[in-house]
């Protein structure tokens, strides 16, 4: 009897385990869709989560298309979302505030026409910040996302000198209340990660999610996948890369800039 009850117990545990696994599987598969729906991005393509035991793949190149016709001057949703998700904080002094993403107002001096453009790390294919970093803390993942390894960043700021887009920030003082996904710290450099943890989980970056509820100016996806939303949009919209003359091949592109 005891063995029978033991078998039942084991069978019960197996059933629970099976149900838990099925639940986890369903959650993993559905979560991105649910999240997209919750953020109002229901029409956007579903992204594939990267299994934790798989390295980032060079078969993908994550990028972003920013349609300036849909980006309004007064909207700051992308900046707020990035700040909230990644936890970078105001310091009380604008000149030392970190800014992973900022809204730049562009004025054509001839026509006086103004437009607004979000600027963040451009996740270049040939990133100058990665080239100059003495320790290799500045690095590019196989899927094109440019990151800072904060464990080996010595705070020399050479990457900030080299970045053509002023996309990196140095942390000038102690911080509190950092987010788990961004273990920020005094004396190191940081910048837009394309919300790498979200991307790995099959979600879109926080700024893209937030923008989808506003003008929908930001499209995120795999530049190497011809069927991806971003690739299709790039085929339709004339787009430019910032400082294309430098040949660093940014992964972020701007539509309707001219």
């Amino acid at each position: 009897m005891s063995s029978c009850s033991g078998d039942d117990e084991k069978a019960g545990m197996d059933r629970r385990g099976l149900l838990q696994s099925a639940g986890a599987f369903a959650a993993t598969m559905l979560a991105p869709g649910v999240t997209l729906y919750a953020f109002g991005g229901g029409e956007a393509e579903a992204l594939q989560a990267r299994p934790a035991d798989q390295p980032a793949s060079p078969k993908q190149r994550w990028g972003m298309l920013i349609d300036l016709n849909k980006c309004s001057t007064g909207c700051n949703a992308c900046v707020t979302a990035c700040k909230d998700y990644n936890g970078w904080q105001d310091t009380g002094r604008a000149d030392i505030d970190p800014q992973w993403i900022r809204k730049v107002t562009l004025k054509d001096p001839q026509t006086g026409v103004e437009r607004s453009a979000p600027v963040m790390c451009q996740h270049c294919a040939s990133p100058p910040c990665v080239d100059v970093c003495p320790t290799g803390a500045s690095m590019k993942r196989a899927d094109g996302i440019v990151l800072v390894n904060k464990h080996i960043c010595i705070g020399c700021r050479y990457c900030m000198m080299a970045c053509p887009f002023k996309a990196r920030s140095f942390i000038h003082e102690d911080e509190t209340g950092q987010k788990v996904n961004n273990p920020s710290g005094k004396g190191t450099v940081e910048g837009c990660t394309l919300c790498v943890d979200r991307v790995d989980a099959g979600q879109r970056p926080a700024c893209v999610e937030a923008c989808a509820k506003e003008g929908g100016a930001l499209i995120f996806g795999d530049l190497k996948d011809p069927q991806s939303e971003i690739s299709q949009a790039l085929r339709k919209l004339p787009s430019t890369k910032l400082r294309a003359d430098l040949g660093v091949d940014p992964g972020v592109q701007y539509a309707n800039l001219t």
Binding site: V130, D131, V132, C133, P134, T135, G136, S138, I152, C153, I154, G155, C156, R157, Y158, F170, I171, K186, G187, T188, V189
Partner: peptide
Amino acid sequence: DLGRPDRLLVAMTTYNFRSIFAWNI
């Protein structure tokens, strides 16, 4: 002047040879 002068050992042992800074070390 480094942001993390305590990581001098990292700078002395972890190199990116594409960096002219690393070559300078």
